[in-house]
Amino acid sequence: MSPPRPLTLIINGEPRALLVEPRTTLLDALRENLDLTGTKKGCDHGQCGACTVHVDGERVLACLTLAHQVEGARIATIEGLAGPDGTLHAVQKAFLAEDAFQCGYCTPGQIMSAVACIREGHAGSPEEIREFMAGNLCRCGAYPHIVAAVQRAAQALEQEALP
């Protein structure tokens, strides 16, 4: 078999050394090796979006990414989103304000996806949000509130960006 190999991942700005097999996905490395269990395992086949994280600023699926593949890349997870003093990110605040979840299992993935969706400029209207959040499934069906939260967060971030 292929033995575990040393690897350094930059997670939420911090280099983290770990020892993982070549077949280990980024999702399993986060959850099993680094105790970062905020990133959820839903389908494990790239269909549900629960494992969405950012690699070099872009949203990707951690379940279909090999940990060794992202050696040296900047990885952002839900744990790194709030400020160092615990101040929630605008998207987190908006999810609370709009009650954009029921069971909460898809929520970290929804939030990481929404942060990227807004940054990409794909949150201009409810229609655009629905299209560009399509990769994150919510089995509880909280979609109307999720769309409202993304819209609210996009407006809040736009306000913040004003001089």
Binding site: G46, G49, T52, E58, R59, V60, L61, L64, T65, S113, A116, C117, E120, H122, F132, A134, G135, N136
Partner: peptide, 9 residues
């Protein structure tokens, strides 16, 4: 095609 996450990968 696919989803924004998959298109990024």
């Amino acid at each position: 095609s696919a989803s924004p996450q998959i298109r990024n990968m």
